[in-house]
Simulated assay, not measured.
Amino acid sequence: MEENEGRLLQAVGSLGNTAAWTVVNERCNLTAAEFKNVVRSAVSHGFIVLHGSQAKPSLEMTSEGRRELARFRGVEQGGVAGIGSLLIFVALQFELDELCRRWGLTQEYPQITWTGTCEGFPVHVLPAHSAGRVEAAIEMLEYLNAPDTETPGLVVVLGICGGFEEDGVSRGDVINAQVIADLGSRKMRTGPDGDHPEFRIKAFNVDNRLTRIFQSGSFDRNAWAGQAVSEFDFPEGRRPTLRNGGGATLVSVDEVVSTDQWRTDLRAAWPKAWGVEMEAGGVLAACTRKQVPVAVLRGVSDLANPLKADDEWRLRSMRTAVLAFEWALKVLRKAEVG
C-alpha cells in the first residue's frame, strides 16, 4: 500500500471509519487531484467504499481496509508495535496546545480525546484541563469506563514537573519515571519542635517499555539533546539530560511544592525521588484498576523551591520531554522498517 493510501485510511479511521469526503480530504492534506486519485485507488483495492450522492459523498473503511491500516501502521490492533494503541494524558492547557501544534491534533464533538499522528503512529490525547491527582483519576476512570472506548495498550503521562536539585536535577532535564510514589494521605504529628507530616506513600511501578528504548543504543541521547538545545533556545552552556533508570522516582502530590522545608520532608520520606508532579498518581490509580499500563515522562520546569520557573522554562521543558517521546517512536519505527 502506498503512503497516500495509508494516510487516507488513517484519516477515515480517526473519524470513526465513516466520514464525509471534505472532512477526510482536509485531514489528508493532499491536493484535490491527489485526493481523488488516492480514493480511486483505495476503492479499487477494496479498502474504501463510497456512499451518498456525487455532490456529497462519504467514505467508509471496509474490514479489509482496517486490516491494511493495521499493516500500514506496523501495529497490533491499531496501535504501535510492541506497545499497542497510545493514549497520551496531559493536565494543563498549554501542554495540550503544544501537542496540537506539533502533531496536528483535532477534535470533533462529542469526542473527549484529541487525535492525530506522531512519527507516523496514531495517537489519542486525553486532557484533564486542570492539575491534581483526583482530577486526573476521575478523568481517566471516566474515559476507561466509557462503553465505546478502546482499551489503550499504553497510557503516557506527558508534561512538566518539579525537580530536586539536591539530586543533580536541572531545569530542562527529562525524567522517565520508573516509580511513582503516590502521596495519597498523611498524618500530622505534634512534636517538641512543632507539627510534622507523616507521609503515607504508595509506590506504583511504571511500565518499562520506554525505559528499554531510552537505554538502548538506538536512542542517541547526544543527538536528542543537541536538537533540543538548537530548537528550544536553551541558555548558553545548558544542555538537557535524560534521567532514565536507576529507580527514577517522581512523587505525586496534591500541592504545588515551592518551599524548601516541604521539599526536604518529601526527600526524607522517599530518598530516591528526583522530583514531584501532580497527576501520575491519579492516572495510575485508575489504570491499575483496569490493568492498563502507564509510562510517565516529564520535563523539569522548576526546582520545587520558592524560585518557581517562569513560563519560558515551562514551555521549553514540555517541548524537550515531547521531543524525547518523539525520538522513542522513531526508534520503534526504525525497528519495524528494519
Rank of each mutant, 00 (worst) to 15 (best):
P57Q: 04
G172S: 04
E95L: 01
V292C: 12
G153P: 11
G82W: 03
R267A: 12
N208Y: 07
L144G: 06
A328I: 01
L266S: 09
T18R: 14
V125I: 04
V156E: 15
H129Y: 10
R200F: 05
F72P: 11
V251C: 15
T259E: 12
T211A: 11
A42I: 00
R209Y: 15
A304R: 00
P57V: 01
E68N: 09
K56A: 11
V49M: 14
F121W: 04
E2S: 09
S63G: 13
A285T: 04
M61W: 05
G153R: 00
F89V: 04
P110G: 08
V322L: 02
G78N: 13
C118K: 01
R238W: 09
I138C: 07
L144K: 02
P110F: 07
R298P: 08
V75D: 14
P235K: 02
G162M: 00
V322P: 11
G246M: 02
T288S: 15
V23Y: 12
V134Q: 12
I160V: 07
T62L: 13
T117E: 15
Q54N: 12
T264K: 09
V155K: 02
A70S: 14
E236R: 01
N222C: 05
P240V: 00
F89K: 01
V337F: 06
T288G: 12
L284F: 03
S44N: 14
I83K: 09
P127C: 01
G281M: 04
E277G: 06
V156Y: 11
D148K: 05
N222R: 14
R319D: 11
E139Q: 05
L266C: 07
L210V: 04
Y143L: 00
P110K: 08
E255D: 10
E166T: 06
T106A: 10
T151E: 10
L50W: 02
L86F: 03
E108A: 09
D173V: 00
G194K: 01
T288I: 04
D193Q: 00
W270V: 15
L307K: 09
N208Q: 15
T151Q: 13
F232L: 07
S301R: 01
N208T: 15
R298E: 09
T113V: 11
L126R: 03
S63N: 14
A128P: 07
S301K: 02
R71W: 12
K330T: 13
R243A: 06
H51N: 13
K187D: 02
T241N: 14
Q107P: 12
G74D: 13
D220R: 01
A324I: 00
G237K: 00
E326A: 06
S170V: 00
V283G: 12
A177H: 04
Q291W: 10
D310V: 01
L332C: 14
P240K: 03
T117N: 14
L15Q: 05
A70M: 13
I48G: 06
D254P: 10
G184L: 10
P235F: 01
Q10T: 03
I201F: 09
L250P: 11
R73Q: 10
L141N: 12
S130G: 12
I175T: 05
A295V: 10
L183W: 09
H124W: 07
W274K: 08
D260M: 08
S44D: 15
S185F: 08
T190V: 00
R133A: 15
G168Y: 10
A20G: 13
G84K: 05
G79P: 14
R71E: 13
P147R: 06
L158T: 08
A33V: 07
F325W: 02
A81N: 13
